[in-house]
């Protein structure tokens, strides 16, 4: 008998006492981790993907030319930009103080036209700029 009140073991709760158990537990948990709830602003209209792209920007950071699939495009008009939230607690492993770009991505919606074919129909794509790598990616192509 122990005089200390013993917390009853509850179903679904694992008491972790050793590294081996912890590893097993971690594997199990990460395979069953909760899905991103609907309602997060990530439901795409159009076609989502992630594809590296080269972007040239003006001095204030606004994209002006884009090289995509080895072809150069010009950006038409004033591109719209916004900041889109990430489910960072599922996507990253660290969140130390001062970490940049953790909670949202800057997204640009660009209307692109082939430089070489001024008469071609324009296409609209969303591109994201990763603050850590400095790389750009196309994340959505609007049909």
């Amino acid at each position: 008998m122990s005089p200390a009140p013993v917390t009853p073991r509850r179903r679904g709760v694992t008491r972790l006492t050793g590294a081996a158990e912890a590893a097993a537990y971690a594997t199990e948990r990460s395979s069953t981790s909760a899905p991103i709830p609907s309602g997060h602003p990530s439901a795409p209209s159009g076609h989502s993907l992630t594809e590296p792209v080269e972007v040239l920007a003006d001095p204030s950071g606004v994209p002006v030319r884009v090289q995509w699939h080895s072809r150069w495009y010009v950006v038409l008009g004033e591109p719209a930009r916004w900041f889109q939230r990430r489910a960072w607690w599922l996507e990253t492993s660290r969140a130390e103080r001062g970490r940049q770009g953790l909670v949202s991505h800057k997204i640009w919606r660009l209307e692109l036209r082939l430089e070489a074919a001024p008469a071609a129909q324009s296409r609209t794509v969303d591109v994201v700029h990763d603050v850590h790598s400095g790389r750009w990616r196309v994340v959505r192509v609007h049909e």
């Binding site: 590294a19 912890a22 590893a23 537990y25 971690a26 594997t27 948990r29 990460s30 607690w89 990253t92 492993s93 660290r94 969140a95």
Partner: peptide
């Protein structure tokens, strides 16, 4: 251990 097995929750 958990980091190695891909669970980042404790790190976070």
């Amino acid at each position: 251990t958990e980091r190695v097995s891909g669970r980042a929750q404790l790190d976070l």
